[in-house]
Amino acid sequence: MNTDHIGIRSVKGAGYTLLLLLESLGYVTHIWKRRRAIFTQMHVIGTQSLAIACFFMLLVGMVFALQTGIEFARFGQTSLIGLVIVSAMVRELGPWMTAFVLIARVGSSMAAEIGTMKTAEEIDALEVMSINPVSFVVMPRVIGYAIMGPILTIFGTLVGVGGGMLVAYAQLGVRPDDFLRFAERGAEPLDIYWGLLKSLVFSLCAAAVACSNGMRTTGGAVGVGRASRNTVVIALTLTVFLNYLLTSFYRMVKRLVAGLV
């Protein structure tokens, strides 16, 4: 039984997670050898999550357009709705909400899958076969997640903007060309890159948390459930926290750049 204080356990867990992430990134040299596993993970994480991520983002875009549209309509500024929706989608909602969908759908099952492998002695079996579990199990998942997270974010953001545009036209009478006229200002290239970078960071973080919880699973089915639950809670919290940090940093950089210019 682990008798450490919860604070000590948390610090140990965070340290293990960070080291596991670094170790798995150290095995990128095995990418060619593990290509089959990586493609499988890309399929599970990306292709199989595409429909739910798009559906989710469509509704987010629609609700967001409705709520902001009501306020803009009061001031007769409905044409600005495109600017607001596109900037919010590209900078925040796209990376963020896609990360949420992936954590719920992929992160939890990833932790459960690795946790089951751990309790079924599969991880031990790999070790005694001199097959490094980080290279065999963790790295393909981290790489698959890191590739598919940003790709899903692109799809999600586009669908979200489409949903917003649909509602703006159908319920607020904003024509698509008006919607898009201001939209360009909402998403400069730097905003798009930054949004994708955020998505990459969230993906790496969620994959590392899921794999780390899976690899530390003890205690059979109860342990697997715990690993899955902890993954969702920790990854969501970290995503929100990292998002705040990255956004603050981005604004600071932008201000600095503007000052220099």
Partner: peptide, 14 residues
């Protein structure tokens, strides 16, 4: 690599 181990559950990769 000198060892082969048969685990209780077989421990096959799922």
């Amino acid at each position: 690599r000198k060892f082969g181990v048969l685990f209780q559950s077989g421990a096959l990769i799922a």
